Computed example of a mutant assay.
Amino acid sequence: MKLVLTIVELLRQLMERQVLRRVDQGDLDDDQVEDLGTALMQLEEAMDELTEQFGLTPDDLNLELGPLGPLLPRHRP
């Protein structure tokens, strides 16, 4: 389950960055920004619930890739 949640968290963070890029570029209208923001918040809440349910922390999902460093950025508390 840890690997599955790690992959989902990686995808969540990638989607979040893509949304931020599109917002910065002005590619989205206000309704799209609102909808995407709500969806990302719900996904983050679901991830928090799942990690708690399985006794994991966000740091548990951050695989160490040796000389490449951690898989995920360490910006979440």
Rank of each mutant, 00 (worst) to 15 (best):
residue 35 D to S: 12
residue 35 D to W: 11
residue 35 D to P: 02
residue 36 L to V: 02
residue 36 L to S: 09
residue 37 G to M: 04
residue 37 G to T: 05
residue 38 T to N: 08
residue 38 T to S: 07
residue 38 T to R: 12
residue 39 A to T: 09
residue 39 A to I: 03
residue 39 A to Y: 07
residue 39 A to L: 08
residue 40 L to G: 05
residue 41 M to W: 10
residue 41 M to G: 09
residue 41 M to K: 14
residue 41 M to S: 14
residue 41 M to Y: 12
residue 41 M to R: 15
residue 42 Q to N: 06
residue 42 Q to W: 02
residue 43 L to T: 08
residue 43 L to I: 08
residue 43 L to G: 03
residue 44 E to R: 08
residue 45 E to D: 09
residue 45 E to F: 02
residue 46 A to C: 08
residue 46 A to N: 11
residue 47 M to I: 06
residue 47 M to F: 00
residue 47 M to N: 01
residue 47 M to T: 01
residue 48 D to P: 09
residue 48 D to I: 07
residue 48 D to C: 07
residue 48 D to L: 10
residue 48 D to N: 14
residue 48 D to Q: 14
residue 49 E to F: 06
residue 49 E to D: 10
residue 49 E to Y: 04
residue 49 E to P: 00
residue 50 L to A: 05
residue 50 L to Y: 06
residue 50 L to N: 01
residue 50 L to H: 03
residue 50 L to F: 08
residue 50 L to T: 00
residue 51 T to A: 09
residue 51 T to E: 09
residue 52 E to I: 11
residue 52 E to C: 06
residue 53 Q to A: 15
residue 53 Q to M: 13
residue 54 F to P: 04
residue 54 F to W: 11
residue 55 G to C: 13
residue 55 G to M: 11
residue 56 L to I: 09
residue 56 L to P: 07
residue 57 T to H: 12
residue 57 T to R: 13
residue 57 T to L: 14
residue 57 T to P: 13
residue 58 P to C: 04
residue 58 P to L: 04
residue 58 P to G: 06
residue 59 D to V: 00
residue 59 D to Q: 07
residue 59 D to S: 06
residue 59 D to T: 00
residue 59 D to M: 03
residue 60 D to S: 14
residue 60 D to I: 05
residue 60 D to N: 14
residue 60 D to V: 06
residue 60 D to M: 07
residue 61 L to G: 13
residue 61 L to S: 12
residue 61 L to E: 12
residue 62 N to R: 05
residue 62 N to Q: 06
residue 62 N to W: 01
residue 63 L to E: 13
residue 64 E to M: 10
residue 64 E to K: 01
residue 65 L to R: 04
residue 66 G to H: 12
residue 67 P to F: 15
residue 67 P to Q: 14
residue 67 P to N: 14
residue 68 L to M: 12
residue 68 L to D: 04
residue 69 G to I: 02
residue 70 P to Y: 15
residue 71 L to R: 05
residue 71 L to Q: 05
residue 71 L to T: 02
residue 71 L to Y: 01
residue 73 P to T: 10
residue 73 P to F: 05
residue 73 P to S: 11
residue 74 R to G: 15
residue 74 R to F: 09
residue 74 R to N: 15
residue 74 R to I: 13
